[in-house]
């Protein structure tokens, strides 16, 4: 299997006082044809990593090979073979969509026509429109058209849907999924769990410059040992139930009290739930709400870091997590 990306012990430290360790030793392997996702909160080091891979920034140490090539000795070939969409690029306002894509097409020795690239991002009816008249989602699709017009063997998308409304986001997902189905190799970054789960063959969860978990989304969720999550609003339990009182129940993997919610990761809800209800009622607690849902990558992230991904590291609310190591129903 040919590797699209091979990264070993990548480190990036920004000089300063104190130096900022943005990337602290990342190993990464992406196979040809994969859609690979970097998932993590803002400031986790995703953009730094992807920009080093794109050859826009130098690494402090570590080795990188893209498509069996090296930035130091094969810069020119690599530039022809990768396509890049940066986070928040503003194209020239006074050019039309077609003029912009044609300009980018002219940089590449080979590729598809500008019209084809525009069609692939469903922007054909806006071909003659000036960039300044486009919506956020249309601008993002234009950026992707510019990234694919050189028929890249490897496509980098840095936060392709950040700041977009849900409808535009879904439209972009459809487009990216189309690329993936056509065999395009993609590396994308996102801080939306749902996006990574829907689009990516494999995901690396990044936090504070390190990969803390890696695998396919189902693998990562299975790694929790609990594919379901029971959530109970906390207002009903003012006397603060001890997490440990619940953690010993059948198939319960993890109990967490965060914000106003008791969140219980559980392998088999039908076994855990009766005991849970007993435990609550024996303490004289009445419930006003209860929900059971499938676990998501969000739960994986919380279980690994103790934080919500949206809150990043600035989460002040204390979180108590109890892992029950003994249970193994898998």
């Amino acid at each position: 299997m040919q590797l699209a990306i091979e990264v070993r012990k990548l480190v990036k430290t920004y000089p300063g006082r104190p130096p900022v360790e943005a990337v602290r030793g990342i190993d990464l392997t992406v196979e040809v044809g994969q859609c690979y996702g970097f998932l993590g909160p803002n400031g986790a080091g995703k953009t730094t990593t992807i920009e080093i891979l794109e050859g826009l920034m130098s690494a402090t140490s570590g080795s990188i090979r893209l498509l069996d090539l090296d930035w130091r000795s094969n810069q020119r070939q690599l530039r022809q073979r990768i396509g890049v969409s940066l986070q928040e690029t503003k194209m020239s306002d006074n050019l039309t969509v077609l003029e912009t894509v044609k300009l980018f097409r002219s940089f590449y020795n080979s590729g598809i026509s500008a019209e084809d690239a525009i069609q692939k991002v469903s922007l054909l009816e806006k071909s003659k429109a000036r960039v300044k008249t486009l919506s956020g989602g249309q601008r993002q699709r234009l950026a992707i058209a510019c990234a694919i017009v050189g028929s890249p063997q490897l496509l980098f998308l840095d936060e392709p849907t950040t700041g977009l409304d849900p409808a535009s986001r879904r439209q972009l997902w459809d487009i990216i999924r189309g690329f993936r189905e056509a065999g395009q190799t993609i590396l994308l970054t996102t801080h939306y769990m749902e996006e990574a789960e829907r689009l990516c063959d494999r995901v690396a969860i990044i936090d504070q410059g390190r990969i803390i978990a890696e695998g396919t989304p189902p693998e990562l969720i299975r790694g929790l040992g609990a594919e379901h999550v029971i959530e109970i609003p906390l207002e009903t339990m003012k006397k603060a139930i001890e997490a440990s009182a619940v953690s010993g129940l059948p198939t319960v993997q993890q109990v967490e009290v965060q914000d106003n919610c008791l969140r219980i990761a559980v392998g088999q809800p039908h076994l855990a739930l009766p005991k849970l209800l007993d435990a609550l009622s024996s303490r004289g607690l009445e419930m006003t709400g209860l929900s059971i849902r499938h676990a998501t990558l969000e739960d994986v992230f919380i279980s690994l870091t103790g934080r919500n991904i949206d809150n990043g590291s600035a989460n002040g609310a204390p979180t108590r997590i109890v892992n029950s190591g003994s249970t193994s129903l898998n």
Partner: peptide, 10 residues
């Protein structure tokens, strides 16, 4: 960031 994007192309 257009300059940076140009730098990412050939």
């Amino acid at each position: 960031k257009l300059l940076k994007l140009y730098m990412a192309t050939p």
